[in-house]
Amino acid sequence: MTTTVTHTEQRDSPYALTHLDALESEAVHIFREVAGEFERPVILFSGGKDSIVMLHLALKAFAPAPVPFALLHVDTGHNFPEVLDLRDRTVARHGLRLHVAKVQDYIDDGRLRERPDGLRNPLQTVPLTEAIASLRFDAVFGGGRRDEEKARAKERVFSLRDEFSQWDPRRQRPELWQLYNGRHAAGEHVRVFPLSNWTELDVWQYIAREGIELPEIYFAHEREVFNRNGMWLTAGEWGGPKPGEPVQTRLVRYRTVGDMSCTGAVDSAATTLDSVITEIAASRLTERGATRADDKMSEAAMEDRKREGYF
């Protein structure tokens, strides 16, 4: 006698994975694949929500053993203090190794020049690529997701970079059946994106499910901001506000966190995880599309930077 299992019965099975379970399982598999294929992987860790989720997944992947990778942060010098504070507390709590490459050091010794517009996010490429080369990292985990931006949507999970850390979309490799090819020549490395198939909503739902701590600026709070090109920016030493850009106190939160000079806040009353999730579910703009000035410099701004070595 043949027994037919319906889709409804499969979905209601106590052994069926939720979509978050499936995403978590995929990310854990990716971390373990890299640990098996590469000699010196590193996790890019800024203290932002995506890198925090990525580290949480790495901790799960190797528990009860420690994470076998170091962390790397490219510090622009214009980071939000709340984010750096959580970064340092997280590193101390888990006994991790953190390498910090500082954009300011490169400006001070003349290897980089300050931009007239004050943006430092585009200046991260050189410190990042030199840190990868000098510390001989052969796999670099990034928190990029395909839903964020069209150039990131072109990335494979394993993204090959040449000896100059440059990205060529034509060298992307097929990844059928979750088979990942980490082969690379001497001097090359692979960028790895465990969150590729996640959405912003997935990230927040996972944070809620796992009880992951975040910097408080991801939740609504009163903040002094000014308007520039339609974005609410935080005043700071980076060069804002200019004359004619009055400072206001508004109830805002951040959907994404980067350099203060290019990361805009959004008007929001969402003070809890549930209210943030509800807000994101109703949004029709990606987090980078709504709040990142560095992605608006040109239609291909992100892709141009990725070709040069940006993450």
Rank of each mutant, 00 (worst) to 15 (best):
T2S: 05
G36M: 03
E9H: 04
V42W: 05
A301H: 06
P66K: 11
I43R: 00
F38G: 11
A293Q: 10
G244M: 04
A186D: 15
W238E: 01
L84N: 10
P66V: 04
R307I: 05
W204G: 15
K296F: 03
T18S: 15
G211C: 06
I212A: 06
T271W: 02
R173P: 04
V53F: 02
S275E: 12
S261M: 03
L119G: 01
M54E: 07
T4V: 13
G48E: 07
D304K: 11
V103N: 01
G187R: 13
R253T: 08
L57W: 15
L44Q: 11
D85G: 09
L96P: 14
G211I: 09
A270W: 07
T4C: 06
A35H: 12
A282W: 03
R97W: 08
A139C: 10
I207R: 00
L98N: 08
D108W: 07
R113F: 10
R253V: 03
R173V: 09
A282V: 10
V91N: 04
G77S: 01
L98S: 06
A101F: 04
E237L: 15
E279G: 10
G77L: 00
R145H: 10
E245N: 12
L176Q: 14
A92M: 08
S298N: 08
L98R: 04
